[in-house]
Amino acid sequence: MHDHSASELPSLRRQKILLILERDGKVMASELSQHFAVSEDTIRRDLAELDNAGLVQRVHGGALPRPKDTGKDYFTRISETDEVKTSLAQLAAGRVKDGQIVLFDSGTTTLQIARSLPSDISITAVTTSPMTAITLAEYKGIKVILAGGQLNLATMSVSGHETVRLLQSIKADLLFTGVCAIHPEVGLSSLYFDEVPVKQALFDSAAQVIAVTTADKLGAVEPFVVAPCSRVHTLITERHLASGSAEDYRRLGIEVEQLQD
């Protein structure tokens, strides 16, 4: 049944889109267009407005609910115990071998990987995150290099010319990259413009790139594109994805490891 009355009031239509999203867990522009009897362009504008207001996360062809941690400050996010992130971090930490040079990107999941390393591991760790550096410093066998630069208070990571210059001087075995959003066609993207050159330098400095992320970041798109998916060698994520399937990433040549139920 078409809801013609809503097509005359964008604000009412957008409220109804949020209700449908809450009910279904995902909305597609094509389906909403038929439901409200308006053009897909109109729906895309609605989704853009809702995204700008922080109420939805736009994905290819539609929208998802905003990830749980959006809008919370860094310290709130790291104080919340998240079983899924812990399990993902433990899988990722198992990839580290003695003697490696390992890059740790910013992000709460990457911090959790630092917490999950074997107590007797012996590596050189390089990070853009002061919190991760402090965590890594608790291990006797880890030599820690902390990149300098301007601190972004939202991500608690550093950026700028000094950060990039240091990262460019390192040839690492492994990178654990934080994921703001990853989409099979768009690639990895970030909410923060200043993160882009830092993340690109991290990618360029690592022989192997491992992206570790909860399922809500897959199929998502943020404003600033960092790199194509082809730059990722391994994706560690949940068993069930909110958008698309693991095959979307395997087709791109990425090894995908998923948590078992």
Rank of each mutant, 00 (worst) to 15 (best):
S30Q: 12
D194M: 09
S159I: 01
G178L: 02
D248N: 07
R95M: 11
I17H: 08
V144D: 07
E22D: 13
A215D: 02
S5E: 14
P67A: 05
E80T: 11
K72L: 15
L188Y: 03
D51K: 06
E83L: 15
V96Q: 13
L153G: 11
Q90F: 10
D204I: 11
S129E: 04
L259Q: 11
F224G: 02
V209S: 02
I182W: 03
G219C: 07
R251G: 04
P10M: 07
I210A: 03
Y192M: 06
I182E: 01
P67G: 09
R239N: 15
V196A: 03
S245E: 02
D41M: 11
S106P: 06
L111E: 14
R251V: 04
F203E: 01
V232H: 00
G71L: 08
K171R: 11
E80G: 10
A154M: 12
K171V: 06
I145A: 09
L9T: 15
R251C: 02
L259K: 09
G62A: 13
Y249E: 00
P184N: 08
I236L: 06
G187W: 02
E222D: 14
S119N: 15
T155L: 05
G25C: 07
A172I: 02
F75S: 10
L235F: 01
G61L: 14
S157I: 05
L111S: 10
R95K: 15
G54K: 05
P228R: 06
I17P: 10
K199H: 09
S39K: 04
V84Q: 13
L9H: 15
E255R: 14
A172W: 03
T108F: 05
A133Q: 03
G94D: 14
H35N: 08
S39H: 07
G253W: 00
T132F: 06
L166T: 01
L218A: 02
C229Q: 07
A181F: 06
G61Q: 09
T237P: 04
E31S: 13
L64I: 05
A154F: 11
L188A: 01
S7T: 08
L146K: 04
E22V: 02
E195G: 05
E195R: 05
F203S: 14
N52P: 08
S39F: 12
T108W: 05
M1K: 09
E162N: 11
A6C: 09
H35Q: 15
A154I: 13
L188W: 07
T155M: 07
Q100N: 02
D3C: 09
L50Q: 01
A201D: 08
V144C: 02
S129K: 10
G141K: 01
T110K: 09
A137E: 08
E22F: 09
K68Q: 14
S79E: 06
G54N: 05
G149F: 08
G148D: 06
V158W: 05
V226A: 08
G187E: 03
L18Q: 11
D82A: 14
K217M: 01
Y139C: 00
E195D: 08
G61W: 14
T155K: 06
A63D: 05
E80R: 14
T214E: 15
L88Q: 12
I101G: 00
S119V: 10
V56Q: 05
N152C: 09
A93W: 04
R239I: 07
V226T: 03
V186R: 15
L117S: 00
I145K: 10
A137F: 07
G62D: 10
